[in-house]
Design a protein around this nucleic acid. Structure first.
Lengths: 154, 154
DNA sequence: GCTATGCATTCATGTAGATTAATAAATGAG
DNA sequence: CTCATTTATTAATCTACATGAATGCATAGC
Protein backbone atom coordinates (compact mmCIF):
# COMPACT_ATOMS: atom_id res chain seq x y z
CA UNK A 1 0.00 0.00 0.00
CA UNK A 2 1.58 3.16 -1.26
CA UNK A 3 0.65 6.70 -0.19
CA UNK A 4 0.81 9.45 -2.79
CA UNK A 5 0.37 13.22 -2.85
CA UNK A 6 -0.99 14.42 -6.17
CA UNK A 7 -1.73 17.81 -7.62
CA UNK A 8 -4.94 19.06 -9.18
CA UNK A 9 -5.06 17.98 -12.80
CA UNK A 10 -2.71 15.05 -12.42
CA UNK A 11 -3.79 11.95 -14.36
CA UNK A 12 -3.44 8.65 -12.48
CA UNK A 13 -4.77 6.30 -15.10
CA UNK A 14 -5.82 6.41 -18.75
CA UNK A 15 -8.30 4.44 -20.80
CA UNK A 16 -6.42 1.49 -22.29
CA UNK A 17 -4.00 1.10 -19.39
CA UNK A 18 -3.56 -2.51 -18.33
CA UNK A 19 -2.02 -2.28 -14.89
CA UNK A 20 -4.87 -0.36 -13.35
CA UNK A 21 -5.02 0.12 -9.60
CA UNK A 22 -7.53 0.89 -6.90
CA UNK A 23 -7.31 4.38 -5.39
CA UNK A 24 -8.47 5.19 -1.90
CA UNK A 25 -8.89 8.93 -1.31
CA UNK A 26 -7.57 10.19 2.05
CA UNK A 27 -8.19 13.84 1.23
CA UNK A 28 -9.04 15.87 -1.85
CA UNK A 29 -11.22 14.87 -4.77
CA UNK A 30 -10.71 12.52 -7.69
CA UNK A 31 -12.90 11.70 -10.66
CA UNK A 32 -13.18 8.84 -13.12
CA UNK A 33 -14.43 9.45 -16.66
CA UNK A 34 -14.56 8.14 -20.21
CA UNK A 35 -13.88 9.90 -23.48
CA UNK A 36 -16.14 8.80 -26.32
CA UNK A 37 -15.33 8.56 -30.03
CA UNK A 38 -16.41 12.19 -30.55
CA UNK A 39 -13.89 13.25 -27.91
CA UNK A 40 -16.55 14.06 -25.33
CA UNK A 41 -15.89 13.46 -21.64
CA UNK A 42 -18.43 11.65 -19.46
CA UNK A 43 -17.81 11.68 -15.74
CA UNK A 44 -18.45 8.27 -14.26
CA UNK A 45 -17.91 9.02 -10.58
CA UNK A 46 -16.60 11.60 -8.17
CA UNK A 47 -14.49 10.31 -5.29
CA UNK A 48 -14.12 12.60 -2.27
CA UNK A 49 -12.52 11.73 1.08
CA UNK A 50 -12.86 8.08 2.14
CA UNK A 51 -14.09 6.90 -1.23
CA UNK A 52 -12.59 4.39 -3.57
CA UNK A 53 -12.14 4.95 -7.30
CA UNK A 54 -11.15 2.27 -9.73
CA UNK A 55 -11.92 0.85 -13.08
CA UNK A 56 -14.02 -2.19 -12.23
CA UNK A 57 -13.17 -4.28 -15.25
CA UNK A 58 -11.25 -7.52 -14.66
CA UNK A 59 -7.58 -6.92 -13.95
CA UNK A 60 -6.55 -8.56 -17.25
CA UNK A 61 -8.59 -6.25 -19.45
CA UNK A 62 -7.42 -2.79 -20.53
CA UNK A 63 -9.47 -0.30 -18.59
CA UNK A 64 -12.17 2.05 -19.88
CA UNK A 65 -11.82 4.87 -17.37
CA UNK A 66 -9.50 7.79 -16.95
CA UNK A 67 -8.86 8.85 -13.38
CA UNK A 68 -7.52 12.26 -12.39
CA UNK A 69 -7.45 14.75 -9.55
CA UNK A 70 -9.94 17.62 -9.36
CA UNK A 71 -8.22 18.96 -6.23
CA UNK A 72 -4.79 18.42 -4.72
CA UNK A 73 -5.23 15.05 -3.01
CA UNK A 74 -3.64 12.46 -0.80
CA UNK A 75 -4.40 8.89 -1.78
CA UNK A 76 -3.52 5.28 -1.17
CA UNK A 77 -2.76 3.15 -4.20
CA UNK A 78 -3.78 -0.50 -3.85
CA UNK A 79 -3.30 -3.44 -6.20
CA UNK A 80 -6.46 -4.82 -7.82
CA UNK A 81 -5.72 -8.37 -6.74
CA UNK A 82 -6.14 -8.20 -3.00
CA UNK A 83 -6.85 -11.59 -1.48
CA UNK A 84 -10.46 -12.22 -0.70
CA UNK A 85 -9.88 -12.03 3.05
CA UNK A 86 -8.37 -8.58 2.75
CA UNK A 87 -11.17 -7.26 0.61
CA UNK A 88 -13.71 -5.08 2.20
CA UNK A 89 -17.10 -6.52 1.34
CA UNK A 90 -18.74 -3.33 2.63
CA UNK A 91 -16.96 -1.28 0.01
CA UNK A 92 -18.06 -3.62 -2.77
CA UNK A 93 -21.66 -3.49 -1.63
CA UNK A 94 -21.63 0.28 -1.39
CA UNK A 95 -20.23 0.62 -4.90
CA UNK A 96 -22.86 -1.73 -6.28
CA UNK A 97 -25.61 0.25 -4.57
CA UNK A 98 -24.31 3.53 -5.98
CA UNK A 99 -24.08 2.11 -9.49
CA UNK A 100 -27.54 0.57 -9.31
CA UNK A 101 -29.04 3.93 -8.35
CA UNK A 102 -27.06 5.61 -11.12
CA UNK A 103 -28.39 3.25 -13.80
CA UNK A 104 -31.95 3.59 -12.50
CA UNK A 105 -31.68 7.39 -12.54
CA UNK A 106 -30.18 7.48 -16.05
CA UNK A 107 -32.97 5.26 -17.35
CA UNK A 108 -36.02 6.66 -15.64
CA UNK A 109 -35.45 10.25 -14.58
CA UNK A 110 -35.35 13.48 -16.58
CA UNK A 111 -32.34 15.78 -16.50
CA UNK A 112 -34.03 18.02 -13.89
CA UNK A 113 -34.78 15.06 -11.66
CA UNK A 114 -31.25 13.74 -11.98
CA UNK A 115 -29.86 17.17 -11.08
CA UNK A 116 -32.02 17.48 -7.99
CA UNK A 117 -31.15 13.95 -6.92
CA UNK A 118 -27.46 14.76 -7.34
CA UNK A 119 -27.76 17.99 -5.32
CA UNK A 120 -29.50 16.12 -2.52
CA UNK A 121 -27.20 13.10 -2.51
CA UNK A 122 -23.86 14.90 -2.86
CA UNK A 123 -24.35 18.41 -1.46
CA UNK A 124 -20.65 18.69 -0.59
CA UNK A 125 -19.50 17.78 -4.09
CA UNK A 126 -21.82 20.29 -5.79
CA UNK A 127 -19.82 23.15 -4.36
CA UNK A 128 -16.44 21.74 -5.25
CA UNK A 129 -16.82 21.10 -8.96
CA UNK A 130 -17.71 23.18 -12.03
CA UNK A 131 -21.13 23.23 -13.67
CA UNK A 132 -19.49 21.63 -16.64
CA UNK A 133 -18.50 18.62 -14.55
CA UNK A 134 -21.92 18.30 -12.96
CA UNK A 135 -23.47 18.36 -16.43
CA UNK A 136 -21.02 15.72 -17.58
CA UNK A 137 -21.92 13.52 -14.61
CA UNK A 138 -25.64 13.96 -15.31
CA UNK A 139 -25.19 13.09 -18.98
CA UNK A 140 -26.22 16.49 -20.36
CA UNK A 141 -24.47 19.57 -21.78
CA UNK A 142 -23.51 22.57 -19.63
CA UNK A 143 -26.05 24.61 -21.65
CA UNK A 144 -28.86 22.22 -20.76
CA UNK A 145 -27.88 22.37 -17.08
CA UNK A 146 -27.89 26.15 -17.21
CA UNK A 147 -31.41 26.11 -18.67
CA UNK A 148 -32.65 23.70 -16.02
CA UNK A 149 -31.43 25.92 -13.21
CA UNK A 150 -32.95 29.03 -14.75
CA UNK A 151 -36.32 27.36 -15.11
CA UNK A 152 -36.49 26.59 -11.42
CA UNK A 153 -36.82 30.33 -10.70
CA UNK A 154 -39.64 30.98 -13.13
CA UNK B 1 -29.79 -22.17 0.59
CA UNK B 2 -33.22 -22.92 -0.77
CA UNK B 3 -33.97 -24.27 -4.23
CA UNK B 4 -37.14 -23.10 -5.97
CA UNK B 5 -38.96 -23.88 -9.18
CA UNK B 6 -40.83 -20.88 -10.52
CA UNK B 7 -43.12 -20.29 -13.46
CA UNK B 8 -42.89 -17.67 -16.18
CA UNK B 9 -44.41 -14.45 -14.90
CA UNK B 10 -43.95 -15.19 -11.23
CA UNK B 11 -42.80 -12.21 -9.17
CA UNK B 12 -40.07 -12.93 -6.61
CA UNK B 13 -39.59 -9.46 -5.22
CA UNK B 14 -41.25 -6.06 -5.44
CA UNK B 15 -39.95 -2.54 -5.10
CA UNK B 16 -40.34 -1.54 -1.46
CA UNK B 17 -39.79 -5.04 -0.07
CA UNK B 18 -37.44 -5.08 2.88
CA UNK B 19 -36.38 -8.69 3.17
CA UNK B 20 -34.83 -8.88 -0.27
CA UNK B 21 -32.75 -11.90 -1.23
CA UNK B 22 -30.08 -12.86 -3.70
CA UNK B 23 -31.20 -15.16 -6.52
CA UNK B 24 -28.88 -17.52 -8.32
CA UNK B 25 -30.31 -18.81 -11.59
CA UNK B 26 -29.73 -22.54 -12.24
CA UNK B 27 -31.87 -22.60 -15.39
CA UNK B 28 -34.34 -20.29 -17.08
CA UNK B 29 -34.29 -16.51 -17.23
CA UNK B 30 -35.08 -13.82 -14.67
CA UNK B 31 -35.14 -10.07 -14.96
CA UNK B 32 -34.91 -7.15 -12.55
CA UNK B 33 -36.64 -3.86 -13.30
CA UNK B 34 -37.99 -0.62 -11.86
CA UNK B 35 -41.32 1.08 -12.41
CA UNK B 36 -41.12 4.87 -12.52
CA UNK B 37 -43.70 7.40 -11.34
CA UNK B 38 -45.35 7.38 -14.78
CA UNK B 39 -45.84 3.61 -14.47
CA UNK B 40 -43.17 2.81 -17.03
CA UNK B 41 -41.00 -0.29 -16.67
CA UNK B 42 -37.22 -0.09 -17.06
CA UNK B 43 -35.35 -3.37 -17.21
CA UNK B 44 -32.22 -3.20 -15.10
CA UNK B 45 -30.71 -6.60 -15.87
CA UNK B 46 -31.43 -9.95 -17.44
CA UNK B 47 -30.22 -13.01 -15.53
CA UNK B 48 -29.86 -16.24 -17.53
CA UNK B 49 -28.29 -19.50 -16.33
CA UNK B 50 -25.47 -19.10 -13.80
CA UNK B 51 -26.14 -15.44 -13.16
CA UNK B 52 -27.04 -13.71 -9.96
CA UNK B 53 -29.87 -11.19 -9.64
CA UNK B 54 -30.44 -9.05 -6.58
CA UNK B 55 -31.25 -5.58 -5.49
CA UNK B 56 -27.84 -4.25 -4.46
CA UNK B 57 -29.03 -1.73 -1.91
CA UNK B 58 -28.02 -2.30 1.71
CA UNK B 59 -30.06 -5.04 3.37
CA UNK B 60 -31.75 -2.53 5.72
CA UNK B 61 -33.15 -0.36 2.94
CA UNK B 62 -36.37 -1.15 1.06
CA UNK B 63 -35.37 -2.29 -2.39
CA UNK B 64 -35.85 -0.45 -5.68
CA UNK B 65 -36.08 -3.42 -8.03
CA UNK B 66 -38.77 -5.86 -8.99
CA UNK B 67 -37.56 -9.33 -9.91
CA UNK B 68 -39.61 -11.80 -11.92
CA UNK B 69 -39.30 -14.80 -14.23
CA UNK B 70 -39.30 -14.39 -18.01
CA UNK B 71 -39.14 -18.18 -18.44
CA UNK B 72 -39.93 -21.11 -16.15
CA UNK B 73 -36.82 -21.24 -14.00
CA UNK B 74 -34.98 -23.10 -11.29
CA UNK B 75 -33.18 -20.89 -8.81
CA UNK B 76 -31.34 -20.81 -5.52
CA UNK B 77 -32.46 -18.25 -2.98
CA UNK B 78 -29.66 -16.90 -0.78
CA UNK B 79 -29.77 -14.49 2.13
CA UNK B 80 -28.16 -11.09 1.53
CA UNK B 81 -25.99 -11.32 4.63
CA UNK B 82 -23.60 -14.11 3.76
CA UNK B 83 -20.46 -13.95 5.79
CA UNK B 84 -17.55 -12.45 4.04
CA UNK B 85 -15.75 -15.79 3.71
CA UNK B 86 -18.68 -17.32 1.90
CA UNK B 87 -19.02 -14.49 -0.53
CA UNK B 88 -17.76 -14.95 -3.98
CA UNK B 89 -15.53 -12.00 -4.75
CA UNK B 90 -15.53 -13.02 -8.41
CA UNK B 91 -19.27 -12.53 -8.62
CA UNK B 92 -19.03 -9.07 -7.07
CA UNK B 93 -16.33 -8.03 -9.48
CA UNK B 94 -18.25 -9.30 -12.46
CA UNK B 95 -21.38 -7.42 -11.43
CA UNK B 96 -19.40 -4.22 -10.97
CA UNK B 97 -17.85 -4.63 -14.40
CA UNK B 98 -21.25 -5.15 -16.03
CA UNK B 99 -22.71 -2.11 -14.29
CA UNK B 100 -19.76 0.07 -15.19
CA UNK B 101 -20.15 -0.81 -18.87
CA UNK B 102 -23.88 -0.19 -18.62
CA UNK B 103 -23.42 3.32 -17.21
CA UNK B 104 -20.77 4.15 -19.80
CA UNK B 105 -23.04 2.96 -22.62
CA UNK B 106 -26.06 4.87 -21.30
CA UNK B 107 -24.03 8.05 -21.06
CA UNK B 108 -22.00 7.98 -24.23
CA UNK B 109 -23.66 5.80 -26.87
CA UNK B 110 -26.69 6.39 -29.09
CA UNK B 111 -29.65 4.01 -29.10
CA UNK B 112 -28.29 2.23 -32.22
CA UNK B 113 -24.89 1.76 -30.64
CA UNK B 114 -26.43 0.45 -27.43
CA UNK B 115 -28.55 -1.99 -29.41
CA UNK B 116 -25.59 -3.32 -31.36
CA UNK B 117 -23.53 -3.64 -28.19
CA UNK B 118 -26.36 -5.57 -26.56
CA UNK B 119 -26.71 -7.91 -29.56
CA UNK B 120 -22.98 -8.61 -29.51
CA UNK B 121 -22.69 -9.03 -25.74
CA UNK B 122 -25.83 -11.10 -25.11
CA UNK B 123 -26.60 -12.95 -28.36
CA UNK B 124 -28.38 -15.72 -26.46
CA UNK B 125 -30.68 -13.34 -24.60
CA UNK B 126 -31.72 -11.45 -27.73
CA UNK B 127 -33.59 -14.50 -28.98
CA UNK B 128 -35.33 -15.25 -25.73
CA UNK B 129 -36.99 -11.93 -24.94
CA UNK B 130 -39.47 -9.64 -26.68
CA UNK B 131 -38.50 -6.49 -28.57
CA UNK B 132 -40.38 -4.58 -25.92
CA UNK B 133 -38.04 -5.92 -23.24
CA UNK B 134 -34.93 -5.21 -25.27
CA UNK B 135 -36.16 -1.65 -25.80
CA UNK B 136 -36.82 -1.33 -22.09
CA UNK B 137 -33.29 -2.53 -21.29
CA UNK B 138 -31.81 -0.07 -23.79
CA UNK B 139 -33.81 2.81 -22.36
CA UNK B 140 -35.89 3.49 -25.49
CA UNK B 141 -39.44 2.75 -26.66
CA UNK B 142 -40.34 -0.33 -28.74
CA UNK B 143 -41.20 2.05 -31.59
CA UNK B 144 -37.73 3.59 -31.53
CA UNK B 145 -36.16 0.12 -31.53
CA UNK B 146 -38.30 -0.85 -34.50
CA UNK B 147 -37.10 2.24 -36.38
CA UNK B 148 -33.48 1.51 -35.59
CA UNK B 149 -33.68 -2.00 -36.96
CA UNK B 150 -35.41 -0.85 -40.13
CA UNK B 151 -32.77 1.78 -40.77
CA UNK B 152 -30.02 -0.81 -40.76
CA UNK B 153 -31.42 -2.26 -44.00
CA UNK B 154 -31.55 1.00 -45.90
C1' DG C 1 -61.06 -23.29 -32.26
C1' DC C 2 -62.46 -18.71 -31.06
C1' DT C 3 -62.03 -14.47 -28.88
C1' DA C 4 -59.31 -11.19 -26.22
C1' DT C 5 -55.19 -9.31 -24.96
C1' DG C 6 -50.67 -8.12 -25.88
C1' DC C 7 -46.86 -7.51 -29.41
C1' DA C 8 -44.47 -5.49 -33.45
C1' DT C 9 -44.51 -2.23 -36.85
C1' DT C 10 -45.55 2.13 -39.26
C1' DC C 11 -46.65 6.94 -39.49
C1' DA C 12 -47.56 11.84 -37.89
C1' DT C 13 -46.50 14.98 -34.56
C1' DG C 14 -44.33 16.73 -30.21
C1' DT C 15 -40.38 17.75 -27.14
C1' DA C 16 -36.15 17.31 -24.26
C1' DG C 17 -31.95 18.15 -24.87
C1' DA C 18 -27.89 18.70 -28.49
C1' DT C 19 -25.50 21.84 -31.31
C1' DT C 20 -23.72 26.18 -32.75
C1' DA C 21 -22.61 30.64 -31.83
C1' DA C 22 -21.97 34.88 -29.23
C1' DT C 23 -20.71 37.30 -24.96
C1' DA C 24 -19.16 38.32 -20.34
C1' DA C 25 -16.95 36.72 -16.26
C1' DA C 26 -13.59 33.84 -13.94
C1' DT C 27 -9.25 31.47 -13.86
C1' DG C 28 -4.58 30.54 -14.92
C1' DA C 29 0.15 31.02 -16.91
C1' DG C 30 4.10 33.64 -17.72
C1' DC D 1 -0.29 42.60 -13.82
C1' DT D 2 -1.62 41.07 -18.43
C1' DC D 3 -3.06 38.20 -21.94
C1' DA D 4 -5.03 33.74 -23.11
C1' DT D 5 -7.86 30.14 -21.98
C1' DT D 6 -11.67 28.14 -19.77
C1' DT D 7 -16.26 28.77 -17.87
C1' DA D 8 -21.17 30.09 -17.49
C1' DT D 9 -24.98 31.82 -19.57
C1' DT D 10 -28.30 33.08 -23.24
C1' DA D 11 -30.56 32.44 -27.63
C1' DA D 12 -31.67 30.19 -32.25
C1' DT D 13 -31.92 26.08 -34.57
C1' DC D 14 -31.71 21.06 -35.16
C1' DT D 15 -32.39 16.10 -34.13
C1' DA D 16 -32.96 11.79 -31.63
C1' DC D 17 -36.25 9.85 -29.54
C1' DA D 18 -41.03 10.03 -27.21
C1' DT D 19 -45.94 9.99 -27.72
C1' DG D 20 -50.29 8.73 -29.66
C1' DA D 21 -52.86 6.32 -32.84
C1' DA D 22 -53.80 2.75 -36.33
C1' DT D 23 -53.07 -2.00 -38.26
C1' DG D 24 -51.92 -6.81 -38.81
C1' DC D 25 -50.06 -10.86 -36.05
C1' DA D 26 -49.08 -13.86 -32.49
C1' DT D 27 -50.38 -15.83 -27.85
C1' DA D 28 -53.00 -17.24 -24.17
C1' DG D 29 -57.25 -18.33 -21.76
C1' DC D 30 -61.53 -20.53 -21.95
Amino acid sequence: MKQLTIKKGEILQRSGDTNSKVYYVISGLLRSYTIDDKGKEHIFMFAPENWIVADSLPKEEPCDLYIDAIEDSIIHVLPKDLKREQQNAEAFIKRLAVLQKRVVMLMSASAIERYEHFEKTYPNIVQRVTQKMIASYLGITPQALSNIKRERFK
